[in-house]
Write a protein that binds this DNA or RNA. Structure first.
Lengths: 120, 120
DNA sequence: GCTTGACTTGGAGTGGCTCCAGACGGGTAG
DNA sequence: CTACCCGTCTGGAGCCACTCCAAGTCAAGC
C-alpha cells in the first residue's frame, strides 16, 4: 500500500513516516518500479507501534535503539522487553502527573466558584 | 526571593522563567536595586500553576490567553474557568491514550514472553 | 584585591516534527 | 494529443518550547 494509506492506518502523518524512515527508526520501505514506497502490513504494524510509543512520550533516541534491536532479531528480545518495561514505568509516572494536575485544576476551579464576583 | 529559589519552588528552570517573562506569560517581575528579579510568593504560585499546565500539555498560546485573562481581573473568571475545564478534558483524553498504550505494551510484552527463543 | 558564584542579556542550538516548492508520472476530460 | 489534477517524491526552511552558552555585572568572602 502507498504512503497515504499507511498514514491513515498507523496514525502517523506521511511527513512523519518519511522523517522516521530518514532517521532509521523505520526500515527502508520497498519501492515500486515507479519509485513510490510500497508498505507491507508489517511495516504498518511497526509504524502503529511507533505512533503509540511516540505519542506517549518515548524519545526518538530510544525508539531508534528499539528499532535497532528489532533489526538484530530474536536474541535481542530480552533487551526489547526491558525498553518496553521502562516505557511502561514512564506511563505510570505520567499518569500520576496528570492526576496531580487534575487535582490542581479542580482546586482552582473550586476557588473560582467561591470567588465569582468577590475579590481576586 | 531570587530566580534560583523561584525555580526550585515552581519546578520551572530559571531559563524557562525568563523565557516566560519575555513572552508575557508571566508578569514582569519586580527588580531589586541591583537589577535582579525579586519574586513574590504570588509570582511563585503563578509559576507553579504554569508548570503544571505546561507539563500536562497546555500550549503556550492558551497559557498566554489565560495570563491575559488573569491580568484583566475578576470579571474574566468565567472564561478562565472554561480554559481550565477545557484543559481538564484534555487531561482525560490524555489519560485514555496512556491507558491504551499501556494495553499495547502489555500485549507486546506478552507476545515476547511467548516468542522468547522461538521465531521473530 | 581577587576569586567565586549567582545573576544579567542576546543569541545560537535542539528535538520532533510540519510545511512548502518544485519536479515527476499516471489517469481522466476535452 | 494536450491539459490538468493527484498523489507522490526530495531537499530544505520554519516552528514550538525550551535549553545552553558567551560575555558581562555585581556582592560577598578570603
Amino acid at each position: 500500500m502507498r504512503i497515504s494509506e499507511a498514514s491513515m492506518k498507523s496514525g502517523l502523518s506521511a511527513d512523519t513516516i518519511r522523517y522516521y524512515e530518514k532517521s532509521g527508526i523505520v526500515p527502508a520501505i520497498d519501492r515500486g518500479p515507479d519509485g513510490l514506497r510500497n508498505f507491507s502490513p508489517e511495516n504498518v504494524e511497526w509504524l502503529t507501534l511507533l505512533y503509540w510509543l511516540r505519542k506517549t512520550g518515548m524519545p526518538m533516541k530510544e525508539m531508534c535503539r528499539f528499532a535497532e534491536l528489532y533489526r538484530l532479531g530474536n536474541r535481542t528480545i530480552p533487551e526489547r522487553k526491558s525498553v518496553l518495561l521502562r516505557h511502561s514505568e514512564r506511563l505510570k509516572a505520567r499518569q500520576q502527573e496528570l492526576e496531580r494536575c487534575a487535582e490542581i485544576l479542580d482546586y482552582k476551579l473550586a476557588a473560582y466558584e467561591n470567588i465569582e464576583g468577590g475579590k481576586q
